[in-house]
Simulated assay, not measured.
Amino acid sequence: MSGNLEFVDLYGEKGSFLHQTFLYCEPLTQRSARHEWKIHPHRHKQITQIFLLTEGGVDVQLDGEHHRIDAPALLYIPDGVMHGFDWQANSQGTVLSVATPMLRQVEQNIGESAKPLTEAFVLAVHMAFSKPLLTICQAIQQEASASSPHQSSMLQALLQQLLIVMHRMQPARNEEGGFSKPERKLRQFQQLIRQHFAQQHKVSWYAGQIGVSQAHLNQICQQYYQSNALALVHQTLLSEAKRYLIFSDIAVAEIAERLGFSEPGYFNKFFKRHTGLSPAAYRRESQS
């Protein structure tokens, strides 16, 4: 497999990872301490992250939700999920970043009983799992930092071990976690929004992807969020626009292009309709 994967870093600049078998492991302190333990909200494209927190704690934002997490804990963040961290100083742990195509391939090797991990979640780490998780993460970090024969195969084998332990930690996921059918459809819709919001798909496209009618999708959204499906898509677009305006110096015209607007003027009208301010005015107010 080949082809670069786009990575959106903390402040919105583009970078690239090697290819679809990318896997990288680093100590939590390597990046967090450098940013004074506070990481602004951001999201990654086709990169899934797994955090093993062994000491300390963190206030984490996952899309619109906030969680307080104390060690020992495991945090799973799929691609497309907005996340930001306010770590306790001197927290310890391991951060694993893996190309989502590689993750999906490894999941298939586990077997049908292991359903794909497509939603963000936080798990307290029981004593019985803390040592196996730490051992596997250390092995991944050691293997990834070396240059050895069959390195890719070894990393995939270690990743498979890690995923198996994670599945054992949450057996309820194998029964759909107790979610009703409408709730599962809603979660699928939310996952698709995170992955495709910048492509400006119509609601009918999303409905077709999850196997329901547009009317039924709107009904589910009204039931759980008192909003229609299009409003949820626009909410994600707006949140992403605000992130760019607050945390980056990217020109408004480029932000519009990144978010799938064919003309900057359309983006300006969309943003002002939802906030009462133009993008430029919103940026000035947020930085004053």
Rank of each mutant, 00 (worst) to 15 (best):
Ser2Asn: 14
Asn4Ala: 12
Leu5Asn: 09
Leu5Glu: 12
Gly12Glu: 05
Glu13Asp: 14
Glu36Thr: 09
Glu36Trp: 09
Trp37Gln: 06
Lys38Pro: 07
His40Asn: 13
Lys45Arg: 13
Leu53Tyr: 05
Val60Gly: 04
Ile69Ala: 06
Pro78Glu: 02
Gly80Met: 07
Phe85Glu: 15
Gln92Ala: 14
Gly93Glu: 10
Gly93Leu: 06
Pro101Ala: 04
Asn109Trp: 09
Lys115Met: 10
Lys115Pro: 07
Pro116Met: 02
Phe121Arg: 10
Ala128Val: 05
Phe129Pro: 01
Ser130Gly: 06
Ser130Thr: 02
Lys131Cys: 00
Lys131Ala: 01
Pro132Gly: 00
Pro132Gln: 00
Leu134Ile: 03
Cys137Lys: 00
Ser147Gly: 12
Ser152Phe: 05
Met154Phe: 04
Gln156Asn: 08
Gln156Ser: 13
Lys181Tyr: 10
Gln188Glu: 14
Gln191Thr: 13
Gln191Ala: 13
Arg194Ser: 05
Arg194Asp: 06
Phe197Arg: 08
Gln199Phe: 11
Gln200Asp: 15
Ala207Arg: 12
Gln209Asp: 05
Gln209Arg: 14
Ile210Ser: 11
Gln226Gly: 06
Ser227Asn: 15
Thr236Pro: 01
Glu240Arg: 13
Leu245Asn: 07
Ala256Ile: 01
Glu257Leu: 10
Phe267Gly: 04
Phe267Lys: 06
Ser278Tyr: 01
Glu285Met: 04
